[in-house]
């Protein structure tokens, strides 16, 4: 019986690379989405909601629910479950609409 998904799929991934979540350096495997890399590190929430400031992360896993919106390299509202992780990506917890810089 497999101890983890990598073992189950008989995977021998290419070397991992680093991404950063709120300053914390995490490993990501080539081909993983941002959300998958965050889940691997035990991180389940990477934004807070607009109205009540509640934590949220991936929910539907297929890009339909938009709960996993993340700010990646400064650009807000990217579906972390769809966006592939790339070496050096800077992920930051997105607060609300993620566009506070535009407020007048």
């Amino acid at each position: 019986m497999a101890r983890n998904p990598v073992e189950l799929a008989g995977a021998t991934p290419e070397p991992s690379f680093e991404i950063t979540m709120d300053g914390r350096v995490l490993p990501a495997l080539p081909g993983q989405s941002i959300a998958a890399a965050l889940w691997s590190a035990g991180i389940l929430a990477w934004r807070t909601t607009r109205v009540n400031g509640r934590p949220r992360g991936a929910f539907c896993g297929i890009g339909s629910c938009f709960d996993c919106l993340a700010t990646v390299n400064g650009a807000p509202n990217q579906r972390a479950c769809l966006v592939p992780a790339r070496p050096g990506d800077l992920v930051t917890t997105q607060e609300g609409h993620g566009r506070a810089d535009l407020a007048v």
Partner: peptide
């Protein structure tokens, strides 16, 4: 809406494509 509550299909999708589990 708590983190860690995920779609059943979502857990499956994340497992199939990213080889990860939510917990």
């Amino acid at each position: 809406t708590l983190p860690g509550v995920v779609g059943a299909g979502g857990a499956q999708a994340m497992l199939k494509s990213g080889l990860v589990l939510p917990g």
